[in-house]
């Protein structure tokens, strides 16, 4: 298995969807290629970082209430 093929299989490997016949060569490559080992680790860190980036919703909220939007919504409801 090449590094390119390894990278193609990473998502299915992590979600447990990689078929048996590909899993063994994948894991063999993982144990032998330090660079792909690191690449897979960073791929996992990326998913985790994305998830954690939005854990504090207040950070993205504008400090002021968008008055014009509030007025527009209340007017549209009537």
């Amino acid at each position: 298995m090449t590094c390119r093929e390894f990278a193609d299989f990473m998502m299915d490997y992590l979600s447990g969807e990689l078929p048996e016949e590909s899993r063994a060569p994948f894991e063999r490559h993982l144990s032998r290629c330090a660079n792909c080992h690191e690449y897979l680790a960073q791929y996992k860190h990326t998913i985790e970082a994305g998830r954690l980036a939005f854990t504090n919703p207040e950070e993205e909220v504008p400090a002021d209430v968008p008055e014009d939007l509030v007025k527009a919504v209340l007017a549209a409801r009537k």
């Binding site: 590094c3 390119r4 860190h45 980036a53 854990t55 504090n56």
Partner: peptide, 26 residues
């Protein structure tokens, strides 16, 4: 030959530690 062009160097701290800081989340 299908090998990565780049050599990946590890990240400098665990992701949960890095992401505990607002600047990194942003």
């Amino acid at each position: 030959n299908g090998h990565h062009q780049e050599t990946f160097s590890s990240w400098n701290e665990p992701v949960d530690v890095a992401m505990s800081r607002a600047e990194n989340r942003a």
